[in-house]
Amino acid sequence: MIATIKAEWRKSRLRPGFLIGAGVIAGVTILVYAANWYLALHPLATRGGDRAIVSLATLYPDQFVNNVMGAAFPIGAAMAIVLGALFAGSEYGWGTVKTMFTQRPGRLTVWAGRMFVFGVWMLIMTFVLFGVGAATSVVVALFQGHAITGPAAVDLAKGIGAIWLVFMVNGSIGLALGVLIRQPAAALGIGLTYVLAVEIIAVRIINLINNGQFKNVTEQFVNQNATALTQSFTSPAFGVISPPTISAEHAVLVLAAWGIGLTIVAAGLLRLRDVT
């Protein structure tokens, strides 16, 4: 297992897809902060000038954990799907799957090592998100002459764990599709279509049936729970916000179940199917 992890890390540590993904996450985080900072300082640009739709208090370091959630989802989740599809599907296009599976260790060991390395990359992207968010919030505080105080350590840990889980589950969608379809382009296309369109349409249709009688079904979808989990990170600085109908605890359990289930399905396909 250790040798497999080392080999996978050696292959992926300079892989352009992961480096570009981390760069996109950093860029989106800066863009979100810049846009919100502008809106907070220029109320005339919004709502006819009666008041700003973004409060400066939400951009300071003590609120950065709550603020980066908007950058992490859905754009970060979509990026995780793309990286998962590339990570799993590209090996088939390169023809390296045969080489991996005809040598030791076994298929499941190889898959476990690949999942571990992918999880590390999702953690790196999470750290990039939070690191850039923290740095940008400090810049805002310095320019506004505000005291620099960080969030509580427990809130920071919860935020990192939540975003890593969201990234991993969406990445697992890409991984499973990459293994199923055996090519990255179709896998990432189907994954993005599902997350950005199919799931949204399905949720709306199900909620219309018998005045929402089957709403509990929609509460088991991946990104319904990802949305609820990210929205659970808020504070009075963001104003009065309606709490999500799905609890954070429920969201964590459902997302974990999806991630584990997709990983097992992909492992089963690798174990049982011919690689040719």
Rank of each mutant, 00 (worst) to 15 (best):
P244K: 13
V254R: 11
A162S: 15
D155A: 13
Q231N: 14
D155S: 13
A157F: 10
A153M: 13
M168F: 14
E199R: 01
I163M: 14
I163G: 06
L175V: 00
A228S: 15
A157E: 05
W164E: 08
V179E: 04
A157I: 13
W258F: 02
H250A: 11
L196Q: 08
E199M: 06
V140Y: 03
V179G: 02
V179H: 04
L180T: 15
A266W: 04
L262N: 08
V222D: 05
G145Y: 12
V139W: 13
M168K: 00
A248D: 05
L255E: 12
Q231A: 12
H146P: 00
S232M: 09
I181K: 11
A153D: 10
V203C: 00
Q213M: 13
N216F: 13
Q183T: 09
G159D: 01
N216Y: 11
F214W: 14
G145N: 10
V222T: 09
L175F: 03
G189T: 14
A197E: 01
Q183C: 06
N211C: 02
V265E: 07
V217R: 07
G239H: 10
Q213V: 02
A248I: 03
L175W: 03
I160G: 05
S242W: 01
N207T: 08
L253G: 00
L175E: 01
E219A: 02
G191M: 07
G212Q: 01
I260W: 07
I148M: 11
